[in-house]
Design a protein around this nucleic acid. Sequence first.
DNA 1: AGGGCTTTATGATTTCGATCATAATGAAGC
DNA 2: GCTTCATTATGATCGAAATCATAAAGCCCT
Lengths: 200, 200
Amino acid sequence: MISIIMKQITDIPPPFGSLPRHGVSLRELRVGDALFRQDDASRAMFFLRSGAINLIRHTEAGQKVTMFRATSGDTIAEPSVFSDHYHCDAISEQPSIVLSFDRQSVLAAMTTDSEFAAAFVKRLAGQVQTYRRQLELLAIRSAKDRVLAGLADGRLTGTVLDFAAELGLTHESVYRALADLTRDGRIEHPARGKYRLKPC
Amino acid sequence: MISIIMKQITDIPPPFGSLPRHGVSLRELRVGDALFRQDDASRAMFFLRSGAINLIRHTEAGQKVTMFRATSGDTIAEPSVFSDHYHCDAISEQPSIVLSFDRQSVLAAMTTDSEFAAAFVKRLAGQVQTYRRQLELLAIRSAKDRVLAGLADGRLTGTVLDFAAELGLTHESVYRALADLTRDGRIEHPARGKYRLKPC
DNA sequence: AGGGCTTTATGATTTCGATCATAATGAAGC
DNA sequence: GCTTCATTATGATCGAAATCATAAAGCCCT
């Protein structure tokens, strides 16, 4: 008799391979599914094996802010390992497959396995750099320049609406900027909703 | 004979107390001094014992972006432990005293001392949260609301000019917003250059 | 094939922040 | 005390992004 229930989760990326098996599980998400919601109790952190997930924070004024767009190979919700709740929504932008790492297991590994901890630190340091890039992007005042920079940074992968949210601009402004840039010959517009930088 | 050269550096905050003594040094900065500059070779990370230091990044377009304003108890340049150069300028906003932790010593401690590593991860996780707050702040479109949020977040501690840079606004706009908010009775203006939220 | 929905797209208008200009206040240095 | 300088502060103008409005194109579902 073949058991699919006991099927092993394979290819756990370093350093998470050293976590006990009971601390790891797998989850599939369809477009629009929430991996977790802001203020939910935090049970785990995640590794995105494939797909794309947006981390969206809701401000007091009811505004939505895309903090981060996670793609294959990214980890999600590391800070929540130290916090008892999540600080933003994690919404699947594309069909995604994530590995869940139990919060307690991660905490335990952190204090007993220094290699694990070191690798974890490295991941977090990378995150910090990413946020800094994001801040740098938001500091660009001109919508046209900001859109161009965002495009150069490879951030237009989903819809233009998502792209606009990531850039902190209205979608109208982004459409206009994209149209301008196309007219200027700085970017190409191969199809409806598709834009890309001119090759050099 | 009393030796001041050999004077011990006291009160090294956890987890850095476990670093070897030769990996720790102390430095004092006057207003405007640079702890390091963007693209300098990274030799150390830092703990700010007192004062305030702004991390400022220069974009390609020559624009200055305040990524982070470090105050007492903050660590600075953690990501640079994994990088061979600094990614921004660190400029002292107030007279500051910093502890330097040699990059190699930190790396070594990270892989051998799991308690050190765990504490380090926690610090970085905190940093990530801070950057998220900053992103959230920058996402507020109205200058008035942004200034108010920044004030509520306790970010106006130095000059209004620095405050403006942190908020990504021109100082004129910030002065006007502060004047408006004062007129609205939402904040108090006890003295020139001083503003604070109305107590409830 | 058709109805409802979202995304893409652009036009018209308004608003608000940037920019430029100017001046008063206070601090630092001589 | 006087000069120099940065910070604080406000006024006038301009431009660009937000807002409001509208519509076509593509998609999902039946």
